Amino acid sequence: MRLKFCSTLVISFCSWQLMAQTSLPKTVAAGAQPVLVSSQFAFTEGPAADKKGNIYFTDQPNNAIWKYDTKGKLSLFLDKAGRANGLYFDRKGNLIACADEKDELWLISPKKKVTVLVNNFGNRRLNGPNDVWVAPDGGIFFTDPYYQREYWDRKQPDIKEQRVYYLAPGAKEPVIAAEDFKKPNGIIGTKDGKTVYVADIDGGKIYRYAVGEGGKLVNQEAVTNFTTDGMALDEDGNLYLCGNGIRVINKNGEQIGHIPIPESWTANACFGGKDGKLLFVTAGKSIYTVKMNVKGAE
């Protein structure tokens, strides 16, 4: 999520209409269009689906995590949510949250018990965990850019570098996974745990890495020069890039379509629903769904 909740990123309706004329990717179900679920929030982010396909997402300014279940019902899951941003479920059903109120990484149990997994690196306060992906073995990768928040008591970072960190299963401290970014933001990985994608939102690139020993991200490869906030990955290896609607690119970084969303900014997306073929999109004050022909990478 970008600074000031993207209030300066305004796209005109005419621009949206132009993008809407761009062909939809074949991954979208025939005749499907984005469906507005609700516009009752301040700024939505961090969608993540559990094993049943229920989707959880954050309303960061209101310090809350919400649930959108497979029947289409909205409910408040957790208030006082640590100003959570990015979310992801581990294999045990725990919700891992980037809680940047105090720049921490949380584990939230199904019974809503909060455990702080990480609250510093080298005894220095993290910049602000932003997005997170949990590997099949339970290892956690998270991005740590610096976006000044109005609720912080500091005006500059304790750590100059904006990195991706890795927390090994059972470890108490993270290690540096990669740090060659201007500002890392969205992160997602493949089902086999061998590949991780990282969005450098200020660098205007999406990088692909192999997962090396000890969680190190190695063999950096620039997949595309498109920029994105959050992103999702489908079972065919296509990436869904957020920002101006949803731009869809294939494994080679080639654009294969665009899903228009009638909002000024889309922050993040994930796959969920009963059959895993529902694309859930967080877009400013609103949330949308799109029926798909493909499932998410999970």
Rank of each mutant, 00 (worst) to 15 (best):
H258P: 02
W133P: 02
K194L: 13
E298Y: 15
F271G: 04
D144W: 04
V28H: 00
I11E: 13
A84K: 01
V132S: 06
L24Q: 11
Y197H: 09
G273L: 03
K51Y: 09
A267H: 07
A30W: 01
T22S: 07
S7A: 13
N130C: 13
Q21Y: 09
I256G: 00
G46N: 10
D158A: 15
F5K: 07
K285F: 10
D144N: 12
H258N: 05
K277Y: 07
E161Y: 02
V294M: 07
D275A: 15
F226K: 13
I187G: 02
L126G: 08
K216L: 10
L87N: 08
F41Y: 12
L117Y: 09
V223R: 03
D144V: 05
K26W: 00
S109K: 08
N130G: 08
V290F: 00
P110V: 11
N62F: 11
K111D: 14
N185S: 14
P262A: 10
A222H: 01
C6K: 12
I159V: 14
G138H: 04
K216G: 02
L217F: 06
P262L: 11
W66E: 08
L36I: 05
A20I: 02
K160C: 03
Q40H: 11
A171N: 09
K111Y: 04
A42Q: 14
L167E: 02
W16Y: 14
I261S: 07
A30S: 13
I201H: 05
E104M: 12
G170Q: 00
G128N: 02
P262I: 01
T266P: 06
N293H: 02
L78H: 03
G31N: 00
D192F: 08
N94G: 06
S23V: 04
K183R: 15
K26L: 03
A269S: 15
L105G: 10
K291V: 01
T27S: 15
M231G: 10
C98Q: 00
P174E: 01
Q21V: 04
E213F: 02
I246E: 07
A32F: 03
L3K: 13
G215F: 06
R247E: 05
I187F: 01
G189L: 03
Q60Y: 12
R91K: 15
D234K: 02
N54P: 09
E263W: 10
S7Q: 15
Q21D: 13
A297Y: 13
F121I: 09
N85Y: 00
G31M: 04
G273K: 06
S286V: 04
D100T: 11
E254R: 11
N293T: 01
G189E: 09
C6Q: 14
C14T: 13
A84W: 03
V223S: 11
G93N: 04
K194R: 12
L217G: 09
N185Q: 12
P145W: 11
N268H: 08
N120W: 01
G245N: 11
V116Q: 03
L74S: 07
N185L: 01
L241F: 05
L117F: 10
M19T: 05
A210L: 13
P169T: 02
G203V: 02
A29C: 03
D131K: 13
S286R: 04
K182G: 04
D200C: 10
F121R: 04
A81S: 15
T22P: 00
Y207H: 15
P184C: 09
F77L: 11
G245F: 06
D100K: 12
A210Q: 13
I249V: 15
